[in-house]
Amino acid sequence: MGPKQEFAEKAREGLVLARRCSRCGRLHLATAYFCQGCGSGGFEGAALRGSGRVETYTIITVPPAGFEEHAPYAWVVLGLDGCDLRISGFMAGVSAPSDLPVGSRARVAGFDGRGIVLERIPGGAPGAGP
């Protein structure tokens, strides 16, 4: 199973599969093959909680093929809790900026034909801690 498949499996459990460089400790998403900091190819696995804060997003009203029935939907960049990694993905149920203020709390909710699927954490107001 390749790293992208493993990543997808973990995403279905709400986790983000990461790898920590065994030489310098830098954290990467599991799809990396060498450390961006020190060039080492040695990693230790790390499954992160897939929750974080919305850093930016868009609401797509002119979708690519396969997403017609979902539009409007959001594509969201999430800053993960407790580290400097981000993850991005699809989010349903967002049709106006008021539906998703920047800073809202959200999490990885799955992986399917829409790629990495994210969802808002109910009651997660912008600015609230993890």
């Binding site: 930016t56 997003y57 868009t58 797509i60 002119v62 979708p63 690519p64 997403f67 979902h70 939907y73 594509w75 960049v77 993850i87 991005s88 993905g89 699809f90 920047v102 829409r114 790629g115 990495i116 699927v117």
Partner: peptide, 18 residues
Amino acid sequence: YEGQAGASFPGLFASMAR
């Protein structure tokens, strides 16, 4: 991470814009 999750190019640059 992007196209597969429904991100179009306008969408990617819109995210930079926001």
